[in-house]
């Protein structure tokens, strides 16, 4: 992604690619006085720096869509609407899709073109997704024949549970991918962790045709030319390696920030509420004590 954006910028020679630096008082002239250290931009540097602004895009307000719309369905001046409602109880079943901790850098996410997260892969699989349901790589639109799924353990406290949940999700996606493409080769990499092995056993019946590697990943490298990925892993103390056309990294699902805030405010423990993250939705039960009681009644 970064590479791609870089090219986008360098297309325009009138944008100075370099950040302009401000003038500063030399260190030796700072001691023993309180003169301002930063001297600011010169006019030339300021204009150059200002030209680096991308003027981030959003609706231009040009009205071309309205001109093309036979039905007059577009209203530019529509304002945000405020609604006040009063309810007896609430049920939170919010999704997790946009709130995921980024996977550690060593897996190459963001640097290697064909390393995607499980959430991106889900969009790729979807008939509604960016590629209209074609299982292709984001780098060159080729159909991979060999995909690796990578689960990893997060040492951060309190994430262990969701890490294991991410394993079932990886298996789910792997199965969907296998169903979609005949003869797709899939490997599943697990961290060297008993909990994961146990969870895998629990899923045993569900993973035909997927080869699992339980020793933990040592390194991931990208091949310059093909952008395929070399994965090195530990197998009973021996280093093994293999080449994949695409890697799918698990992410740790987390509830949306506003849900965390809401939960704090209403004094409920999110951990109690965290349910089936497999479906990418947290099933909270009713959030008020009163509400929860009702739910049990109902």
């Amino acid at each position: 992604m970064v590479e791609e954006k870089k090219r986008y910028i360098l297309e325009f020679p009138d944008i100075s690619a370099e950040r302009q630096s401000i003038q500063e008082l030399p260190v030796e002239e700072r001691i023993n006085n309180f003169n301002e250290v930063s001297l600011g931009f010169t006019e030339d540097a300021a204009v150059k720096e200002a030209k680096r602004c991308l003027s981030c895009r959003r609706c231009l307000g040009c009205g071309l869509c309205l001109a093309e719309c036979d039905k007059d369905a577009i209203v530019f001046e529509q304002a945000d609407e405020k609604l006040d409602i009063c309810v007896d109880s609430m049920i939170i079943t919010t999704g997790l899709e946009r709130v995921c901790s980024p996977p550690p850098e060593r897996f190459g996410y963001g640097r290697y073109a064909n390393v995607v997260t499980d959430i991106e892969f889900e969009r790729i699989l979807s008939d509604n997704g960016p590629y209209g349901g074609l299982l292709i790589r984001p780098f060159d639109g080729e159909m991979p024949r060999k995909i690796g799924f990578v689960c990893w353990a997060d040492n951060n406290e309190g994430r262990g549970e969701s890490g294991i949940k991410s394993l079932s999700y990886a298996i789910h996606e792997a199965m969907l991918a296998k169903n979609k493409v005949d003869g797709l080769e899939i490997s599943l990499f697990l961290p060297d962790n008993d909990d994961y092995t146990k969870e895998l056993k629990r899923n045993d019946g569900k993973v035909p045709g997927i080869s699992t590697k339980e020793g933990g990943i040592m390194a991931i490298k990208e091949i310059q030319e093909s952008k395929n990925l070399i994965v090195q892993w530990d197998e009973n103390g021996n280093a093994r390696e293999d080449e994949f056309e695409m890697l799918v990294l698990s992410t740790m699902p987390e509830p949306a920030t506003y849900i965390i805030e809401l939960a704090k405010k209403l004094d409920i423990n999110l951990e109690d509420m965290r349910g089936d993250t497999f479906s990418k939705e947290i099933y909270f039960s009713k959030v008020s004590k009163q509400g929860r009681k009702r739910s049990e009644d109902g």
Binding site: C69, I85, D88
Partner: peptide, 28 residues
């Protein structure tokens, strides 16, 4: 024992009832 909730509905700027999904707008 009740919740008063303030909701903000962000403007979508398209009147759903009128739209017939002809894709003319996204083409241009």
């Amino acid at each position: 024992g009740k919740f008063d909730i303030k909701i903000k509905k962000r403007a979508i700027r398209v009147i759903e009832e009128r739209c017939d999904d002809c894709k003319a707008c996204i083409k241009v």
